[in-house]
């Protein structure tokens, strides 16, 4: 498995639209956080909406993704509970909600093009947006540095 290659935060911010509220004007303090189960979340405190997906490390370990199971908008989810699933030839992987809240929107494009998860896991391949019920949960998640360290530990 390849080493973790995270893209620069600046690129990511401009490419991930946050629920159509005009992401280019977002302040530079949007925190991107990670879970030990290899999900990422980009949280927008103005709207209380977090965009979530699986990390590049996760996609490279999965291999070619052929199917993405997405939650139904309106579904209530609790942090750590199954949110959906990703299927590759190798295996099925559950995706867990990084935070609690209500599913606000899902990335419908993944139904037609599951390979987006491999091509652009942390940008175009976002999975869904969650309206957070407890925004403080974001702070409990891993920072980019901590997540990087977690992945490196995983490799050994």
């Amino acid at each position: 498995m390849g080493r973790l290659r995270l893209l620069g935060t600046e690129t990511r911010r401009t490419l991930i639209p946050t629920a159509g509220y005009g992401s280019s004007t977002r302040p530079a303090s949007l925190p991107k956080r990670y879970t030990t189960a290899h999900e990422w979340i980009l949280y927008d405190s103005d709207t209380s909406i977090g965009t979530t997906g699986i990390t590049d490390y996760a996609q490279s370990s999965l291999g070619d993704v052929v199917f993405v199971e997405l939650p139904t908008p309106g579904t209530e989810v609790a942090a750590g509970e199954p949110l959906g699933a990703v299927e590759s030839v190798k295996a099925a992987s559950d995706i867990y909600a990084p935070v609690s809240g209500v599913v606000h929107e899902v990335n419908e494009q993944l139904s037609d093009e599951p390979g987006l998860l491999n091509k652009s896991p942390e940008m175009l391949g976002w999975l869904c947006r969650i309206k957070l019920s407890n925004p403080a949960e974001v702070e409990t998640l891993l920072t980019e540095e901590a997540y990087k360290a977690h992945c490196e530990a995983d490799e050994h």
Binding site: V86, K90, A91, A92, S93, I95, Y96
Partner: peptide
């Protein structure tokens, strides 16, 4: 993310 499957 939690993996299932693979015949090993």
């Amino acid at each position: 993310m939690g993996k299932r499957g693979m015949a090993s």
